[in-house]
Amino acid sequence: MSSLKTPLVEMRDISISFGGIHAVDHASADLYQGEVVALLGHNGAGKSTFIKILSGAYKRDGGKIFVNGQEATINNPRDAKGYGIETIYQTLALADNVDTAANLYLGRELRTAWGTLDDVAMEAEARKVMGRLNPRFQRFKEPVKALSGGQRQSVAIARAILFNARILIMDEPTAALGPQETAQVGELIKQLKADGIGIFLISHDIHDVFDLADRVTVMKNGQVVGTAHVNDVTKDEVLGMIILGKCPPGAIPGPGASNS
């Protein structure tokens, strides 16, 4: 039960502004082991920016991040990966001109005893993990730009799960996928959750995530409207949070709630 008391991640009072615009304004969120927290909001609500602070892509202006109750120093993506935080970016963040294995291991290449790149071993591992995610995938020798949208997405997902992540951030992971592949990603999320991984799932569409998430945190204009267990609120109430910033009785209101 101690794991339930200490959140895997706690982001407290996070703020960041770009030239006078408060993209994220004193936002807080937490995530427990084996839990899926959906971060919802309109386009431009600040959810991607908020979560990019956790993944190290942006440097926050204020606020603190705790991992397992300990204050964490996250100033760049390398720091975040050091805490076991892996991110699947909305833009996928793939180097288009190199192949799948090179992308999977980008920044963490396997090396031989001589200190040179062990391309063969990396490709073998890549074949294993891709075989699990997307069994029909065969184009290992081609640069990633030659792949389809769905294949590129599975490369980005494979990269995040390859390194035993403890905290996974998925920013619109199904944006480029068809219905069947979306269902596959849903299965994957359930499987990772069962492994005890905490997942932040970002989406602007609640239908995508309502069935997968344990809790939802809604953002509007850079502020948190509220956080709720999915059992305590209805889809319509969550929509009200997203569109109007109205916090229903089943949710814990945040600084962005309009009726507080």
Binding site: N76, P77, Y89, T91, N97, A102, L106
Partner: peptide
Amino acid sequence: SNRTRFGRYVYAIGGNPEAAELAGIN
């Protein structure tokens, strides 16, 4: 350029500088 990490990073940066940065490359 073909066998070392440095070379791999050079090409990755050329392909997508932002992705290279997000992958933790200095």
